[in-house]
Amino acid sequence: MASAFLATSAFAADDDAALTRTVSALDTQVFDAYNRCDMEKFSTFFAPDVEFYHDKGGVTKDRQTLVDTTRRNICHKLRRELVAGTLEIYPIKDYGAIEEGVHRFCELDTGKCDGIAKFLMIWQNKGGTWQLTRIVSYAHRPIPQ
């Protein structure tokens, strides 16, 4: 019985590592598009009925509004950086994954990174196509100097 448990545990660890690589790569891709203001590519990462909850900006409940708001408020103004060592990925059985971490925002004109926040994103995997269905960005605060 112990050997079956070990085999199952090793398989689960391999699955978790693969999931972490997949979602980490998706995070890099979505925010590369965000930072480059490639709204066409950026929009492909979101389900049509995505819900985005932002503690300072309110709630957005569809992809087009999310893209339009990002274009208007972020493009050519801010850059998002993932804070190293904060990314955590958890599987959601028969659905996808939870991604959480901390990110900071830097002004493009000055290069100054003065805002930081926590985030939680829900990724759905439909036949190998991953899209964000829910996003929560919260605890926005200045970076202590």
Rank of each mutant, 00 (worst) to 15 (best):
C106A: 14
T8L: 02
D68K: 06
R63N: 12
W123T: 05
L66S: 03
Y34V: 00
F119T: 09
V59A: 05
F46Y: 15
D38R: 05
D27F: 12
R36A: 14
E100V: 07
I92W: 01
M121A: 10
K77T: 12
T20W: 08
T69E: 03
F42T: 04
K61Q: 13
R79Q: 11
A13K: 11
S137Y: 06
T65Q: 13
F42P: 02
E100C: 11
V83M: 06
P91K: 01
R134L: 06
A18C: 05
T129S: 09
P142F: 02
I122N: 02
R71Y: 00
G127I: 05
L66C: 00
K93Y: 06
Q131R: 14
T65W: 02
G58H: 01
F11T: 09
I122H: 13
D62G: 03
A12W: 01
S43H: 07
I122C: 05
L132C: 04
T20D: 13
C37D: 03
G101E: 12
K61H: 11
T60R: 10
S24Y: 07
L82V: 09
L26F: 06
L132F: 07
T44G: 09
Q131K: 14
L120V: 13
D16G: 01
Y53Q: 10
K41A: 14
V23T: 05
A4Q: 10
Q145E: 08
N35M: 06
E51I: 14
T22R: 15
L87S: 14
F105E: 11
L82A: 09
D49N: 15
P48W: 05
T8Y: 03
A17D: 14
P142H: 03
G115F: 01
T69A: 06
A18Q: 12
F45W: 08
A33P: 02
A18Y: 02
A10I: 00
S3T: 08
S3R: 05
Q64W: 13
Q29S: 15
T86S: 15
D55H: 11
R71A: 13
A18K: 14
A10P: 00
K56V: 06
E88L: 12
E40W: 00
P48Q: 04
K56C: 00
I98C: 03
V30L: 10
I116V: 12
S43I: 10
H140A: 11
A13T: 09
L87E: 14
G96L: 12
Y95T: 11
D114Y: 14
T86P: 12
D49M: 05
D109T: 13
A7L: 07
M121E: 09
Q131S: 11
R134F: 04
G96I: 08
V59T: 12
D62N: 15
F52N: 08
I98S: 09
